[in-house]
Design a protein around this nucleic acid. Structure first.
Lengths: 216, 216
DNA sequence: GCGGAACGGAATGTTTTGTTCCGCTACCTA
DNA sequence: TAGGTAGCGGAACAAAACATTCCGTTCCGC
């Protein structure tokens, strides 16, 4: 029997491989967040492994992207769940938005969409994520902390905007995104409505769903 | 002597070529706005001409991009100039922002940056554009219509965010961008400051300038 | 001590794309 | 009216990028 003793943790082919599992996924995350069309070789290099180590784990680039997206959806759900548990609705909303933006979940999900065929698990998580975001927003609105005329389909458009900020290193990017998230949040408060109502109409769920249909 | 009579306007190789000049530049604008990395062939197809018609006018893709960017900078300057002439500072500011966003000037300039070596004319126009934007913003701030703590280097970050909205056809994109521009603008008004000051620091001009250094 | 898991990296085949080239059309000028 | 040629369409070409495969090597695990 394979007894996982101390050695398994310290060294050994098996343990090294397990560590590579994490290294590769972490590298894929940072690489594809920075550049959604990065070549596979970049991920391997960032992980400090050869290409074959990557292809041993994922049969194709598509599979890697699918896994990464799953990872992103799980992060979304976790962040939204945590925000639901914050007692103050406004604070919960802010924590939610900041969490999504800080973790760059949008780049891990929507920016990878259309590059792999979604599994039922993807769909299920996406539905759950949408429902949770709905709840966080509506709770904040009903408490009077967020202006009306805003739907939950407006939120992805805000992530999308903030995810587009890519200036400088990771630290500066995060700082800038928080800065402009503050502007968005100020514009979403009820007092902002006195400057005029929101014009136009929010995207429909179908509009948003269309981004998941395979492109190539 | 070549007398440009009526025929020149209606037909003739010369006139057709002149019309192609415009068609190609217009096609390049729409194509590269939609997809900054589009291949040259796409531009020719959108213009309804062959590839050679394009290469007769521009010696390389790089030259085409450089010309397009020049075009974008001129549009920026024109929009800013017009905004300066609006008497009400806030209205001028709004008109300026809406003009930049509607014309997608950001996609015509920053999104093409780093793909060609800028000429002195590029630099000159960029300086002029920056100065004009400065003026529009400061005028609005000094009239008390825009909150403090905001610098003119914040503005490109806002264009960048709005330019990232790409959902549906041209019409819907414009509608959505206006919708979220409203949110930004509400967040920039003095009343929004009561929800807290802007955190972090705006980018430096050097940060912004770095985007113009050749990449490939 | 040996079988094979794990791996690094070169090699491969394909796709994409910028640019050139060739033959053709039809305007312009003499 | 006839040759010269500007302008053009699109095939052809070469180079680059990239996903994926393959092979030789190492060294863990039994």
């Amino acid at each position: 029997m394979t007894d996982p003793g101390e050695r398994t943790v310290l060294d050994g082919r098996r343990a090294q491989a397990a560590r590579n599992d994490d290294a590769i996924l972490a590298a894929a995350r940072t690489v594809f967040i920075a550049e959604p069309h990065a070549p596979v070789g970049d991920v391997a290099r960032a992980a400090g492994v050869g290409i074959s180590a990557l292809y041993r784990r994922y049969p194709s680039k598509e599979a890697l992207l699918a896994t990464l997206c799953l990872d992103g959806l799980r992060r979304f759900v976790a962040i939204a769940r945590r925000a639901c548990e914050v007692t103050d609705p406004w604070e919960g909303f802010v924590e939610f938005m900041r969490g999504i933006v800080d973790a760059d979940v949008h780049s891990l999900t929507v920016h990878l969409a259309g590059r792999f065929t979604p599994t039922p698990e993807h769909r299920g998580l996406a539905v759950e994520a949408g429902a949770l975001a709905d709840r966080v927003l509506h709770r904040a609105q009903q408490s009077g902390a967020v202006r009306g005329g805003l739907g939950s389909t407006d939120l992805p458009m805000i992530y999308e905007q903030l995810a587009a900020i890519r200036l400088g290193d990771t630290g500066q990017i995060r700082e800038l995104r928080r800065r402009y998230l503050d502007v968005h949040l100020a514009g979403l408060r009820p007092g902002a409505a006195s400057y005029g109502p929101l014009t136009g109409t929010a995207p429909t769920p179908a509009d948003l769903g269309a981004r998941w249909t395979r492109t190539a």
